[in-house]
Amino acid sequence: MNQILEILGLILIIIGSIFLFLGALGIYRMPDVYNRLQAGTKATTLGGMSLIIGVGLIQPDWFWKSLILVIFIALSNPISSHALARSAYKSKIKPFFKGKEEDLDAYKEVVERNENN
């Protein structure tokens, strides 16, 4: 039984590290801050979660603690990335576009509203 749990935990840790690596690669490859946040948030949620659960499976004493950590990650990760994105457009960082002006409409609206307030 312990053997099985350990192998399962190791598999989860490997999956987690692959996703964390992809998140880092995404931060390197993406063109602007918003897209980088996309890669940085999503790949790291699943990566961090499966890594922590993997550790919890290898050390069964820590299993409940690791479960709580996973819940905290799921709750706090989107909030922190939302705060970063919000501060990015508040300091008027223009998003990257592939030459389509109409995609900018919503962005302009947000910036205008902020200047009026």
Partner: peptide, 14 residues
């Protein structure tokens, strides 16, 4: 999206 070499993104704010 991160792995594929052509980086298939078409970002915007809606």
């Amino acid at each position: 999206r991160v792995i594929s070499p052509s980086l298939p993104i078409n970002p915007g704010i809606v």
